[in-house]
Write a protein that binds this DNA or RNA. Sequence first.
DNA 1: AATGAATGAGCCTTCATTCAT
DNA 2: AATGAATGAAGGCTCATTCAT
Lengths: 209, 209, 209, 209
Amino acid sequence: MSDAASPKGRATRSRIFEAATREFAMKGFTGARIDVIAREAEINKQRIYAYFGDKDGLFLEVWKRTFELIYEKNREFYHLTEKDVPDLGRIILAGYMDLHERHPEFWRIFVMENLFGGKHGRPGHTRDDTPYGHLRSLYAAGQNDGIYSSDVSFETFIFVLTAISFFYTSNMKTMSDTLGSDLSDPDIKAKLMGEISLMMFDRKECHAN
Amino acid sequence: MSDAASPKGRATRSRIFEAATREFAMKGFTGARIDVIAREAEINKQRIYAYFGDKDGLFLEVWKRTFELIYEKNREFYHLTEKDVPDLGRIILAGYMDLHERHPEFWRIFVMENLFGGKHGRPGHTRDDTPYGHLRSLYAAGQNDGIYSSDVSFETFIFVLTAISFFYTSNMKTMSDTLGSDLSDPDIKAKLMGEISLMMFDRKECHAN
Amino acid sequence: MSDAASPKGRATRSRIFEAATREFAMKGFTGARIDVIAREAEINKQRIYAYFGDKDGLFLEVWKRTFELIYEKNREFYHLTEKDVPDLGRIILAGYMDLHERHPEFWRIFVMENLFGGKHGRPGHTRDDTPYGHLRSLYAAGQNDGIYSSDVSFETFIFVLTAISFFYTSNMKTMSDTLGSDLSDPDIKAKLMGEISLMMFDRKECHAN
Amino acid sequence: MSDAASPKGRATRSRIFEAATREFAMKGFTGARIDVIAREAEINKQRIYAYFGDKDGLFLEVWKRTFELIYEKNREFYHLTEKDVPDLGRIILAGYMDLHERHPEFWRIFVMENLFGGKHGRPGHTRDDTPYGHLRSLYAAGQNDGIYSSDVSFETFIFVLTAISFFYTSNMKTMSDTLGSDLSDPDIKAKLMGEISLMMFDRKECHAN
DNA sequence: AATGAATGAGCCTTCATTCAT
DNA sequence: AATGAATGAAGGCTCATTCAT
């Protein structure tokens, strides 16, 4: 609940947060155990309640941070310029895949809340605050240049990219099994992503006709 | 565990199964409560243990059924012929979307097991037994005809289709929010799917050049 | 409860009894499971209730039979005559040890009821019916002949014999451990019994002085 | 499991232990109820799990303590000297009888584990660590002096003493019934013990011949 | 006589949370 | 700020027993 005031307190709070993130990501909200988080953070259980109120409060903080990460990733795309337009799809996809690779736990939390949560809402943001402004204009430029079909809206474009990166991560296990190839293998991943880009973003030479 | 022997027993077992499917889908494995399942199924809790052994056993059955649904859907594709090759992507995507629409709970179970489960594996099937034989050959035919790029493997093709249909359902809520348009609206859905098809499956006129 | 009327019923009842005896002896009254007994007897659980009323009733039958066995063993001693008097201790001890060896389960039931039961009482016998009449007179003869000390009453004599055979059986495991020799080994058992006889029953040459 | 750290915790742990000892002794392992132990100890059920892990862990502690009592009793015998050799049997028997009189519950636990347990073994001791070193040498001295027969090993000697004291307690009820005299009466007990000593330990005058 | 289905009470265990120091 | 002790409300699972056929 209350924020930590002293430096020592802040360190404790932070250790709790890290441990909680791991535990929630690994086991889901219901599966996560306060005792485990306390043990992993090497603090007394009571500290958790002092700093975060209760299990829900603790999760909310983690969930907020997850959202923050996604916004951060999208902010990275602010640096993209006109010259990146032809590679836009590839870059966004790679960005999302990279986000996941470096923060595997955050995607899991995102999904979890989407599937089984629902009581936490989108934290601290308003509808206006859609994070896609810059990308949207770049995409429009690409459409004008005939690089992207004007029949495919930006929404569809971003939807597909998000879907692929999301699905890749969240269902890697079963899909590896079903497709008969290990999706966690970097080579196989590279091949898959390459082909996906080919499939979706390389209409240039075609439209150039 | 043991199967029900009499029709009455089978009915009970079935009621348990339905209730369990709903409960697991709604709350995840850890969040699901045996008591709730029993109450929903209007049976005595002990029956669950008599018919399914324990919570894990019960979930395994539900998980198996989830897989079975996918196989069933794929079997529907057996009747596709050469003449369907140009529309293959559209047809499969529509099929998957339909599967989910009629069984919203199963996708939830799918992702839950993928992210937080891990002890159940692909049930009752061997690696050789990939369910894609027929589709694979149709796709190959399409590649030969230049309808599908020979640089995009069947695995990638099916992966993307699965990803899109899956993500559409599982993240409809958050994506509606983020994109600012209600994905549960049939018109918007139709538009999105149309554009996706355009984006991915319509290289014909292009290659025809 | 009700006795079985048909031959088939009698066989069923008997199979239940055997299974119950084993199960009770192995796990004690509380530890024994009706389901296990039914499975072992290869009958439907309900038959147990039809024939024996309830778990208590079933145990009572087993407990009765245990007592019966001890009485039977004592009746075997009726055949002993004056000429057996010098070996009386040895013979009784051997008899008890033999009883146990052939019916390991019955001693266990006897102890169990003694320690944790108490609600079943000594079944179907009255105080007058002490089973030691014959042995008592043989022992008295031995005392007259100076083979047994007249300062040691028959009660003490039989108490010690019972104690040894009982303790040997019921605490074999821990005593093997403590003494450092495996009491279940027939050779070690023979040695122990021989020495015990020596210790207690061989005062003859001494008193003969 | 974990030990209590504060005095208050230790007191709680101890109350649990006492209650558990009584409950296990009274009803056996399976018959004992965690709820009852908690109620008797006047603590929250959960404390049991915090301090002892589970029912098995709790029992193991009780079982260990039982063993410890025997070792303690044997340590009392360390002060015996050569001059006690003639009375060795009597002294040991009296000591064991006394042990039981002050800890009636422990014998019950002993036999329970022997008959129906089997998973706990002798706790925390190795085979070499037999607790009888001193008694053994005193007995050997007695054998040299002709007080004890050299044909009767120390193991047999101690076995018989243990058996008698144990059986006296554990089967007092049934034996009183069978023998027709109340073994709980101190006079009768004294008489019995006197006669037993006579029977087993008084070879002196005889060998003196 | 026999069986599969069903039940309610109860058992061990765990969880999130609060208390007292 | 920090901790060990404590708690009540479940949660999964099992048991003896009865019902219906």
